[in-house]
Each structure stands twice: as structure tokens, then as C-alpha cells.
């Protein structure tokens, strides 16, 4: 809905109209040229790791049981998790479920990934608290949902946009104190992508 504007809306649009009418209109240059990486899954893993993210090569057969084993092995102190409402039951680790603000780990499922930026795309329908509050964020992602370029991913996402989406490209970090990088400032200090499917796409290994 249109909110408060008094007469501001019309005044502003009139002034903008007058300013642009007096100037030569510039054309849109079209899409930014570029190919993106060839081996999208390997490139995603490489970029995501370089930003401080972690990648686990989960075979297609991996389920909640494998995730539970990984959690016990890597972070035995995590005894309860928060999971995204759209997480398929089979990908849920068998641990007590608690509210996101109390959970040692949050488990979500990514809508997709982006190779050129090393990003996970997380729609708000997956529950934002799960993606943001626990110190460890685990994201299941299918290798075949990783796009080479951000442009392609966003255009595909735009076909059915959720109220909000987050792009997570590594853990939360800041260098605001003495120019020293610290992680886990506000969001998760560890972000782990569980990539289901081959980490190296068949085309690239041939």
C-alpha cells in the first residue's frame, strides 16, 4: 500500500521527471558479458572455502544419519539442533529439536548455490532464525542446483520470489576492531555446505 507521503510522492516524481526530461536518455547496456566457471561445483567449493566456509562432499546417498555422525565427530558439544521447516525429514539428524536461539547448530536446505561468488541462496520460507542464530549453520545443497553465475541464479529465483532471501558466502566476520578479522560476530561463525552429488561434475573430470 501507499504509506505516508503527504504531497511528497508527486513532488518528487515531478522534479525527477523535469530533471530527466532535460537530459539525453542513456540506453541500457544489456547483460554483463561473462561465462562463469566451467566446473561449477568445484568452483563453488573453492570460492566458498576461500571465504571461510566449509564444504562436505555428501554423496547422493547421504541422509540425516550421516549428518548426525558428522556432528558427533566434528562438534560433539552440539546436543540439540534447530531445523528449517522445509527440511525434508530424511535429512534431519536424530537430535533433540530446540528453538534456534538455543540450538548449537541450525540445519537448512539451500534453494541453490552460485559458483562465481561461492554463495548459498536461502529463501525466507526456510525460517530465518535457523539460518542466523545458531553458531553453526549446516546447509544441504544439491550439486545440480549450483549455478555458474549469480545472474542466472537470481533470474531463476525471480520466477517465484519469496518475501526475502539471503545469500550466505561464508561465516559472519568483521574487522572493525583493530583491523583483525573475527568470525561469528552476529551470524554463524561456521557455515558448512553439505553438497549432495559429485563435488566434481562429470564433464570436468573427463
Amino acid at each position: 500500500m501507499i504509506g505516508r507521503s503527504g504531497g511528497a510522492r508527486d513532488r518528487i516524481l515531478r522534479r525527477v521527471g523535469a530533471a530527466t526530461a532535460a537530459r539525453e536518455r542513456r540506453p541500457h547496456p544489456g547483460a554483463l558479458a561473462g561465462d562463469g566457471p566451467d566446473d561449477v561445483v568445484a568452483a563453488f567449493a573453492d570460492r566458498f572455502r576461500r571465504s571461510g566456509g566449509e564444504v562436505v562432499a555428501a554423496g547422493m546417498g547421504w541422509r540425516g544419519g550421516e549428518l548426525l555422525r558428522w556432528l558427533r565427530d566434528q562438534v560433539p558439544e552440539v546436543t540439540a539442533v534447530a531445523t528449517a521447516p522445509d527440511l525434508p525429514g530424511e535429512l534431519r539428524p536424530d537430535l533433540p529439536e530446540v528453538a534456534a536461539r538455543e540450538a548449537g547448530a541450525g540445519v537448512s536446505v539451500g534453494w541453490g548455490g552460485v559458483a562465481e561468488t561461492g554463495s548459498l541462496i536461502l529463501p525466507s520460507t526456510g525460517g530465518r532464525a535457523v539460518q542466523l542464530l545458531p553458531p553453526l549453520h549446516i546447509v544441504w545443497i544439491s550439486a545440480d542446483r549450483i549455478f555458474a553465475r549469480l545472474e542466472h541464479a537470481l533470474l531463476s529465483l525471480a520466477a517465484d520470489l519469496p518475501a526475502a532471501a539471503g545469500l550466505h558466502s561464508g561465516p559472519s566476520k568483521s574487522a572493525d576492531i583493530g583491523r583483525t578479522v573475527v568470525t561469528g560476530v552476529h551470524g554463524p561463525g561456521r557455515c558448512v555446505a553439505f553438497v549432495r552429488g559429485a563435488l566434481r561434475s562429470p564433464a570436468a573430470t573427463e
Binding site: P85, T117, G118, G126, R128, A163, A164, L167, S169, P171
Partner: peptide
């Protein structure tokens, strides 16, 4: 100098669909 910031928020409007706690 990063390929992209660690977090990007894309916000279209208020939470409307099931599961969205925004």
C-alpha cells in the same frame, strides 16, 4: 575486495508464506 559480501539480503516484502518467520 571480496567476490561478494558474506551476507546479502534480498527483501521483497513482509513474511507471507508458511515457514517464514520474518
Amino acid at each position: 575486495g571480496q567476490p561478494i559480501g558474506c551476507f546479502v539480503s534480498l527483501i521483497q516484502g513482509p513474511a507471507a508464506r508458511p515457514g517464514d518467520d520474518g
